[in-house]
Amino acid sequence: MALLFSGGLFARQQDFADLDLRLASDEFSLLLQGDLSFHFSKAALEALANGLPLAVDTEVIIKPANKWYWQQSLASFRYKLEIQYHALSQQYLVKGIDHTYPRAFLTQSAALAALGRIKELALVELSSLDPDEQYEVSIRSVLDSESLPVPLRPLTYLSDEWRLRSGWKRLHWPENN
């Protein structure tokens, strides 16, 4: 439902985030790393400055590269990233993908940078992947309007400033030569 309203069906803005991501692997897992640079709208930033928490849903889908669209994916995840201004400390609290507790940042830009930073996020175990198959990892970020206060939600269904989402970033593993 959240995706339906916040990003799936009605979302229009495709440049919500620059997804500078890469796939890597360690001994056991397929890893995702890189930065998500978010471009919040003016209304969203104003809401952030007024203490409203902004949540970003990042969806990751892993499937064999030659599978059809409707075929079942190998794995899919949704990560919620959240940023909020803390008035008393005059800092921004960030709860990112790889952080289990919030971190405080003195500036908004530092907080936004930290929000999208992904350090070696384990996606799937390498043992579950077929070595002869190429896999496609699709990543997309959407502003989760369902996390906004209820009175704001009708507005998010109608306003472009609140319907924020990125395009799909598609990575392949193993990478094409």
Binding site: A47, N50, G51, L52, A87, L88, V150, L152, P154, L155
Partner: peptide, 28 residues
């Protein structure tokens, strides 16, 4: 106490920000 002040201020700030939307929501 600080947490209470922070919560109250944040809640008030949030309500103040969504004041019009709050009205619109009830009117809707």
């Amino acid at each position: 106490l600080s947490q209470s002040v922070q919560s109250a201020f944040a809640a008030y700030k949030e309500l103040s920000y969504i004041r019009d939307e709050l009205k619109n929501s009830f009117i809707l």
